[in-house]
């Protein structure tokens, strides 16, 4: 959607790390690169991520989080950085079918992993049912927590169906019921300061086919 720098980003990713090119070039996944004596080459490693179905090979400073890899290197900025410390949920993505906070995991630890971001769930003209339900129920305001909320919401319904217990499950030896009480508890790792919670619960209930 934008011209200019964004358009050449993919090639530039490799150039960005060119400072460490000699080292990076020889790297396989998960290997160590020591930056001995090279002030300009912090350790890099190669990683291949499967983002929204597309394989992407990146040479990254080992310190790069999955969140920053997605936002700054793959240029998928739908995944948000709200706190960078696991305290808000804005960075939620689905990795190998499970939702996680992408800010508290290193990109290099995800060799070969399937990462689904908000952009992979649906597109503006072909929305995922959860995305459409958020629009219909006004499950957002500023929109900044929204991608994380939606990725979480999709995963939460799966978790309930899969029988993962929660803090509000009355009897943990039995499967949890599909209720908005369960949804509210499980969504609590996604903070919305705009306070769209009541509407998000309604959007989720609609997608789950239960009463709000």
């Amino acid at each position: 959607m934008t011209e200019g720098y964004g358009a050449i980003s993919r090639r530039d990713v490799l150039k960005t790390s060119a400072a460490g090119a000699a080292i990076a070039g020889s790297l396989g996944p998960g290997n160590v690169a020591m930056a001995q004596g090279q002030a300009d080459a912090p350790p890099h490693a190669a990683v291949t991520l499967k983002v929204n179905g597309e394989s992407t090979r990146l040479e990254l400073d080992t310190r790069t989080t999955l969140l920053d890899a997605l936002r700054e290197h793959v240029k998928l900025t739908g995944t948000k950085k709200g706190c960078d410390h696991g305290q808000c949920g804005a960075c939620t993505v689905i990795v190998n079918g499970r939702r996680i906070n992408s800010c508290l995991t290193l990109a290099v630890m995800h060799e070969g992993d399937e990462v689904t971001t908000i952009e992979g769930l649906g597109s503006p003209d072909n929305l995922h049912p959860m995305q459409a339900a958020f629009v219909e129920h006004d499950g957002y305001q500023c929109g900044y927590c929204t991608p994380g909320q939606i990725c979480s919401a999709v995963a939460v319904l799966e978790e309930i169906r899969a029988g993962v217990p929660s803090h509000v499950t009355a009897d943990v030896s039995k499967p949890s019921p599909m209720t908005t009480t369960e949804m509210r508890e499980r969504m609590s790792g996604n903070i919305c300061r705009c306070g769209a919670y009541s509407n998000i619960a309604e959007a989720m209930a609609q997608v789950a086919g239960v009463k709000a």
Binding site: I100, N101, V164, S166, V172, S173, G189
Partner: peptide, 29 residues
């Protein structure tokens, strides 16, 4: 660990403690 059937049945306090901690995303990691 929280979702393991044996833990839920025989060590309920452990399941309960786990699901009271952090968030779903964090517990997944």
């Amino acid at each position: 660990l929280a979702a393991d059937a044996r833990v839920r049945k025989d060590y309920g306090v452990l399941t309960r403690a786990l699901v009271a901690g952090a968030s779903g995303q964090l517990r997944n990691k």
